[in-house]
């Protein structure tokens, strides 16, 4: 009965809390910070000259270019797709809405290897459209097109997932108001819908981009690992590692790790500055 009068806000951490803090800090250090440190220390283990040479050799440069190209195609497409899907789902009631929502989540629940394999089964030499594609001299698998397709499939939930709860939360009254004030559909989208979702959209694009550049599984299946042609940066890391070129592998990996750190900083900044305009599930 003595505890009744004490407000909950004053509860102190129980006696074993410091142990838990130490335990989680240890796990974080061993599993996250240490590997990150290893990536950079191994990359620079033979000096900065070796490092620079490793990231400027032609295969590495073409891997970087390919990664940027794939992301530059996949991310805008998924942004457009995400806005369209979120708009449909948040603004309209229709049959099959639940199915559409489930389908959008599918890439999250499915192994990326499967996401790559489906394209091989469709467009590979033995695939459904394989013969037709060979006859017409169209290369999808073991080519940039395949990489883009696989990346799009794996990363398409990011933007849509970020926008749907926000747009449902905001409702359509502002858009309806703009229409009654004489605005057309495009003006309403450009001046009302888009500004209202801009930060959440940026957040989704950021996550989508990080995944698009870092994707390994799906891309690995469709790539064929042709050096200098169809290896993206993550695949390049694997190729070098398998060749026992550890400095090269870690140098390339350090680029990916830096990308991850930049993404993290931007993401945290967005959450800090614009938490109110992100989806409810991201608010702190």
């Amino acid at each position: 009965m003595t505890a009744v009068g004490r407000p909950f806000s004053q509860t102190r951490l129980p006696g074993f809390a410091p142990l838990l803090v130490i335990a989680s800090a240890t796990v974080m250090t061993v599993l996250v910070l240490l590997p990150l440190f290893v990536v950079f220390s191994d990359a620079f283990s033979k000096g900065i000259g070796h490092y620079l040479a490793a990231i400027t050799e032609p295969d590495a440069v073409s891997a970087m270019k390919l990664t940027l190209l794939v992301a530059a195609i996949a991310v805008p497409l998924n942004a457009v797709f995400g806005i369209a899907a979120a708009w449909c789902i948040a603004r309209f009631e229709f049959r099959g809405k639940g199915v559409l929502l489930t389908l959008i989540d599918l890439p999250f629940s499915m192994s990326p290897v499967v996401s790559g394999l489906v394209w091989v089964l469709l467009f590979g030499a033995q695939g459904w459209f394989g013969t037709w594609l060979i006859d017409h001299d169209v290369k999808i698998i073991f080519a940039t097109t395949g990489l883009v397709l696989a990346t799009i499939l794996v990363t398409f939930p990011f933007v849509a997932r970020e926008l749907i709860p926000l747009m449902q939360d905001q409702g359509s009254d502002e858009e309806a108001a703009a229409l009654t004030l004489g605005a057309g559909g495009f003006t309403t989208f450009w001046r009302i819908t888009l500004p209202n979702i801009r930060w959440a959209l940026l957040y989704g694009v950021l996550l989508c981009n990080a995944r698009a550049m870092g994707e390994f599984g799906a891309v690995s299946v469709v790539s064929g690992h042709i050096r200098g042609l169809t290896t993206t940066l993550p695949l390049h890391v694997e190729v070098l590692y398998n060749d026992y070129d550890f400095v090269g592998a870690f140098a390339a990996a350090s680029l990916l790790a830096s990308l991850g750190l930049v993404t993290l900083v931007l993401k945290t900044g967005l959450e800090w500055r614009h938490s109110g305009e992100l989806s409810a599930n991201r608010r702190h």
Partner: peptide, 19 residues
């Protein structure tokens, strides 16, 4: 269409453009 009706509407929750 809505935009040609010249109807001034005040919504229940005002629907002001927040940005």
């Amino acid at each position: 269409p809505v935009r040609r009706r010249r109807v001034g509407m005040v919504f229940q929750h005002y629907a002001l453009f927040r940005h």
